[in-house]
Design a protein around this nucleic acid. Structure first.
Length: 422
RNA sequence: GUGGGCGUAGCUCAACUGGCUAGAGCACUGGACUGUGGCUCCAGGGGUUGCGGGUUCGACCCCCGUCGCCCACCCCA
């Protein structure tokens, strides 16, 4: 036997029966984002490695050990994108989009790649819906972005499965000060920290705050809070943001332990979390990144955005609703080649009118064709055999109420059936 | 990268302490019903028990190796 080929580890097929969920997610997201003035952008799967090193941060886990990196034929180091914000920022800078509008709002959907060990809710190729707004730095904007995210959850009927958690991680002025204070506190208890956190102490001390290790958690719980060390401007910004969130009628909880794994975040950060996805609790996450564009060599333009994990969202949707594929309106049961010749022009015309028609192509008994029509869930079965051919008519059977009648197989007649019984 | 669990039909699972030709339900194909679906009954197709080796009179079962999947750590969407 020939060796069976399988998909690459961590890469998954999405089969047709799953598509209704993906389509609903895509359609709701598109119409919602566009109602807020966001425009779709598409970016390449591959970027120069340097973009992610500079954008995400070269000491982050994502860049350090999770990227698919390879050398191109010309010797250039390229990477499959592990996330989209840096890519969209690159496009924003490259096309000087800041000169075209004062605010630039984009959304994007596509696959991301991270070489991690696959697990519940975690794949090596996964999909994200991204939203990025460049050019505005204002509490009401932040609230609006979060309101949009929460509304998406509502539209997908998963709002009871998630909670919006929000935090503020300071600005270029107050974060370094807080960072020192935190390091001082943590250094005092260094012996009790897990080995990963000992390492984080130097590289990314804020991350220790959401370590899952029990003793680290306890230490984090009593750690100095960023909230108590924000500068006046940041504090005011955060308070106003919360106020606008209330105005938008978005439920949220403040979680001082939320930090981000990517270096570009500043100020407002938030996550849409769930407890229903195993160890993976983030369904969506985002925040403000006011220095990213400039750090990537662009103009000094602030930004805010978020990414929604599509697979995780779909998993939650599946738990809450049963969606099915569309079913055919007509199944044409044909008993011989003559019958096919007779009916094919009509079938093609109906399909042109966007009416889903199925026709049997193999030589099958009427019984088995009926079975097939039933299995496909066709609304009507249209029978074409010797008797019908003689009369120039077809027999139409309503599969639900079993009513059966003959009619002339004109497109108009079929369309009338569709109208009468939509 | 580290740890744990699991690999039997397309799917979900059986098969004693190592012992008959590896079974069942669902699904599939057909028949009962020669041109009428769902329900019922009957029949049929479908397996290198992940792969390789070892132990044994005998291996789905035990041992070694290997590959794969899942879960957790880690990380994050």
């Amino acid at each position: 036997m020939v060796k069976m080929l399988k998909a690459v580890r961590g890469f998954k097929d999405v089969l047709p029966e799953d598509m209704p969920y993906w389509h609903l997610l895509g359609e709701e997201a598109r119409s919602l984002f566009e109602s807020y003035g966001y425009r779709e952008i598409r970016i390449p799967v591959l970027e120069k490695l340097e973009l992610f090193q500079r954008g995400i941060g070269s000491t982050t886990d994502i860049v350090e050990k999770e990227m698919y990196v390879f050398e191109d034929k010309g010797g250039e180091l390229l990477a499959l994108r592990p996330e989209a914000t840096a890519c969209i920022a690159r496009a924003f800078i490259e096309h000087r989009l800041d000169l075209k509008h004062t605010t630039n709002k984009y959304y994007f959907f596509g696959p991301m790649f991270r070489h991690e060990r696959p697990q519940a809710g975690r794949l090596r190729q996964f999909h994200q819906l991204n939203v990025e707004a460049f050019g505005v730095r204002s509490p009401s904007m932040d609230a609006e972005v979060m309101a949009m995210l929460y509304t998406l959850a509502r539209k997908l009927h998963i709002e009871d499965a998630v909670s919006l958690e929000i935090n503020h991680i300071g600005c270029a002025k107050c974060r370094p000060i807080y960072r020192e204070i935190l390091i001082n506190y943590l250094a005092g208890q260094k012996d009790k920290l897990c080995k990963d956190c000992k390492r984080r102490l130097e590289r990314n001390p804020l991350r220790i705050l959401d370590c899952k290790n029990e003793t680290c958690k306890e230490i984090a719980l009593n750690a100095p809070r960023i909230m108590d060390h924000l500068c006046d401007e940041c504090r005011r910004y955060f308070e106003e943001t919360l106020d606008f969130l209330s105005v938008c009628d978005v439920p949220f909880v403040i979680n001082p332990l939320i930090v981000r794994g990517l270096d570009y975040y500043t100020g407002t950060v938030f996550e849409l979390t769930t407890t229903e996805l195993g160890a993976q609790n983030a369904v969506a996450a985002g925040g403000r990144y006011d220095n990213l564009i400039e750090e990537l060599g662009g103009p000094s333009v602030p930004g805010i955005g978020f990414a929604v994990g599509a697979e995780r969202t779909v998993a939650l949707m599946r738990k809450r609703m049963k969606l099915e594929e569309k079913k055919p309106t007509f199944f044409f049961a044909v008993l011989d080649a003559e019958a096919k010749r007779f009916i094919i022009p009509v079938v093609l015309s109906l399909r042109e009118k966007k009416i889903r028609c199925e026709m049997e192509h193999e030589e099958k008994s009427l019984k088995s064709q009926m079975r097939k029509a039933n299995k496909l869930g066709a609304k009507y079965t249209v029978m074409v055999g010797e008797d019908e051919l003689k009369k120039g008519k077809v027999t139409v059977r309503n599969m639900k109420d079993k009513n059966q009648f003959e009619m002339e197989p004109s497109v108009e007649n079929f369309l009338r059936l569709v109208e009468e019984n939509p």
